[in-house]
Design a protein around this nucleic acid. Sequence first.
DNA 1: CATGAATGAGAATTCATTCAT
DNA 2: GATGAATGAATTCTCATTCAT
Lengths: 227, 227, 227, 227
Amino acid sequence: MARRPLTSPRKHASQERSRATVEALVEATARILVREGFERASTNRIAREAGVSVGSLYQYYPSKEALVVAVIDRHNEEIMSLVRATVAQVAAEPVERAIPKLVAAAIEAHRVNPRLHRVLAEQIPRTGQLENVEAFDRQNYELFRTYLENHRDEIRPLDLDMAAFVCVTSVEALTHTAVLHRPDFLTDAAVGALVEEATRLVLGYLREAPAGPATRGARLPVHLAAG
Amino acid sequence: MARRPLTSPRKHASQERSRATVEALVEATARILVREGFERASTNRIAREAGVSVGSLYQYYPSKEALVVAVIDRHNEEIMSLVRATVAQVAAEPVERAIPKLVAAAIEAHRVNPRLHRVLAEQIPRTGQLENVEAFDRQNYELFRTYLENHRDEIRPLDLDMAAFVCVTSVEALTHTAVLHRPDFLTDAAVGALVEEATRLVLGYLREAPAGPATRGARLPVHLAAG
Amino acid sequence: MARRPLTSPRKHASQERSRATVEALVEATARILVREGFERASTNRIAREAGVSVGSLYQYYPSKEALVVAVIDRHNEEIMSLVRATVAQVAAEPVERAIPKLVAAAIEAHRVNPRLHRVLAEQIPRTGQLENVEAFDRQNYELFRTYLENHRDEIRPLDLDMAAFVCVTSVEALTHTAVLHRPDFLTDAAVGALVEEATRLVLGYLREAPAGPATRGARLPVHLAAG
Amino acid sequence: MARRPLTSPRKHASQERSRATVEALVEATARILVREGFERASTNRIAREAGVSVGSLYQYYPSKEALVVAVIDRHNEEIMSLVRATVAQVAAEPVERAIPKLVAAAIEAHRVNPRLHRVLAEQIPRTGQLENVEAFDRQNYELFRTYLENHRDEIRPLDLDMAAFVCVTSVEALTHTAVLHRPDFLTDAAVGALVEEATRLVLGYLREAPAGPATRGARLPVHLAAG
DNA sequence: CATGAATGAGAATTCATTCAT
DNA sequence: GATGAATGAATTCTCATTCAT
C-alpha cells in the first residue's frame, strides 16, 4: 500500500466519454458515502455504482483518497460559491444588514447536501491528503476579512485577522453544530432566533465596546499572561 | 448495514495484575493513536505496544472501538475535571471576571494532551459507538448554563439554553481551532489577545444589547424567516 | 495444540467435592451443547456454566474432547440401560411380541434427551477420539444377536450376524430419522403406525421367506456379483 | 446466536478463467476435506490448494460453508444421477427384479467417492446452511414413491409415504453403515449376500403380510399407543 | 487443589490495487 | 481505453490450554 496515495486526478478528461466517467465516479462516491458511510465505501463498490469497472476508476483516479478528495472539493466548491455570492451581494451593505445575511448564508451552506456534509464532517479522517481540506476555511477568512476592511469605519478598531478568525470560526461552529446536532434550532419557527443570536454575537463583538471596566481589569491566569 | 461493535469493557479487572493490564492497554492505545494515527492502530499493534497478548486485549475490551472509547473517556474526564474545577472556582464571580478565566481554562483544556486531542478530533470517525461521545459536550452546556442562571442579573434577559449553546459552542470552536490550526495565536505573546477577544465576544453577547436598530430591523432572507 | 487430545478423565474423583465438580462439568457441557451448539461450546463457557474455573476443568478433563466424550458416554449409557432393560424384559417372549416392544424402546431411547441427541448426531464431528463412539452400536448388535440365538426356532435359518446387522441398523435408522426429521410420525396418533410398520419390516424379514422366485432368480449387476 | 454464513455462490463466473477458478476451488475443497478433514479445512488452506488467492475464493464463495455446500451438492448430484438412472432403468420391472437392482445401486452410490462420503457423513456439522442438505434425501423418497405408485398391484395395500420412508431409510442405512463400518460385508464374496438380505427385507415388507396373528394382536406399550 | 489472567497460533474475511486480455 | 479476475497483506477476533498466584 502506498504510504501517501496520489490525489490529483490522472488525466484531464479531455474527451466526452471520459468526462462522463469522471462525473459518474465522483457522484457514485458521494452517493455511496451518504448511503453506506466511509468505511463501507470500497473502490469496487464505487465503480459498480458508477457503472464502470474498477480498472476504469484507476484510470482516472490514482487512489481511493483521490476520489474522496474530489468529492470534498466539489462539495466545498458548491458551498463556497454560495458564500461568495452572498458576500458579493452584501459587500456594500453595513454590518447591521450584512451580518444576518451572512449568518443565514452559512446555515444555507450547511444545508446544501446535509447528509454528505455530515459524512464528510464525521467520518472522513483528516489524514494523508485528506488533511489539507482545512485550506478551504482560509477562503472564508479572506472573504470576511476583505469585507471588514471595507467597513472599518462601522466597527471599533481591531486586528482584522483576529476579528475574521473570531467571527468566522464562531459562526461556522454555531451553524455547523446546529445542523449536525441541534435540529430543534433549525425548525422554521426557531431558525430566526438562531440567526438573530448569532448576529448579535458578531455585532456585539465588532462594534464599540461597552463602557465599564469589563475586559480591562480582567486579570489572566498567570500561565496565560503574555511572557 | 453497520455492525456496531460493543464498546463497554468486558470485565472489571478485579485483581491487581489485570488492572495493570487494562491500564497498559488504554495507555498503549493512546500512545499508538498519537504516534501512528487511528488507521494504523490495530488491535495486534496495540497489544504488542502494551506488552500484552491480543487475547488479553479481547479479555477486557470487546473491540478496538471499545478501547478507543476508553481513551476518549479518559481524555474527556481529564478535560472536564479541569473545566469543572474552573467553573467551581469562578461560580461566585461576576461575568466580567469569570468569562476570561473560563476562556483561559478552555485553552488549557485543549492543551492537556494536544497531540492526542488532535487525533481524537481529526481522525476518529464519529460512527458506531464512537458517535455518542458527543454526549460529553452536554456537560459543558450544563455547567455554563448553571453559571448563567446564578448570574442572571448581570446579563440581559435571554433564553439560557440558547445562550449556553452560543457561548459554549463559540468558545470551544475558538480554542479548538486555535490549538489545532493557529499556533500563532497561542504564543505567550499572543494568547492574551485571544483570551481578550473571546471574552469580549461572549460579554458583548451576554450584556445589554447596544441601542439602535442593529438587530431589530434586520430582515431575514425569506426562506429563513419563521413559517 | 495437541494433535490427539487425551480423552480419559484425569482422576477418579475420589473425594466428595471432586465428584460434584466432575458432575457439574459434564452436565454443564451437555446443557451448553444443547443450548448453544457444539461450535459455541468453549471450555471457558463450560467452566463458567459449571460454576468452576477453567483451571479446575482441566484438572479433571485433559481436553475439551474428553468432556464431550464424557457427555456422549453418559448419554449412551442412559440409552443403553433403557434398551438393555427392554431386551431383558422381552428375552423370553416370542418375536411377534418382542419386536414391537423393542421398536417402541428404540423410539423411547431416542427421546431420552432429544435435544442433546440431535446435537450429538448432527454437530459433533466424528473425528479424533470422538470417532470411537460407534463402538456403542456394537452393544446393540450383541444384545439383539443374543436374543435371536435364543429364538432361532421361531425364525427362518439365517446368518445371525447379518440378521442382527440388518434388523438393528434398520430399526435404528427408522427411529433416528423419525425423531430427527419426521415429527409427524411421532404424534400420539401416528406413532402406533410407525411401530407397526417397523415391526412388520423386521418380522417379514426374520420369518419364513414368502414362496415364489422372488429373491432367487434375481440376477445381480455384474460388478456386485460374488467373485 | 448463530451467524448464518451465506452459502450461495457469489458470481456466476462467466469468463473462462473464472470458471476454471471456481472449478479448482471446489475440487481443492473436496481434496482437503478428504485429506485433512473438515476441521483443518480453512479457507486459506483451500485457496492455496487450489493454486488461487484467498481473495479469489471470496470472490466466488462468500464463506467456507458455501464451498462445502458446493462440494456436497456436487457429490449428491453424482449420486443422484446414478440413482435416477437406475430407477429409470427398472421403472417397468416388477418389484422382485427391481429391488435388488436398486439396492445394488444404493451400494454403488455410496462407493462413488467413499472417502469424501465418509467425511461428509461424519464430520460436516449439520448446522447453519449445511443443515438443509438433507433436502436431498427427499429426492430419494420421491423417486421410490413414484416407482411404488406404478407397481401398486404387486404389493399389499399400504400408505405409500410410509412405505417409501421405511424402505428408503432402511436401505440407505444398510448400505451407508456397511460402507462406513462393515467393509467385511462389501467384499466381492459377501456383497451378494448383503444385497440379497436387503432385498428380502424390503420385499418381505412390501408384499402380502404373512398370515397369523403376527402384527395383529401385538399390543403396544401404553405410552406409544395412539391417544 | 482452585483460580482466572494470560497466551498466541490460527481462522475468516476485506479491499486497494494491478494487469492480462 | 475498458474490463474484471486475481492478488495477498492486513485486520479483527476466538479459544484451547497453561501456569503463576
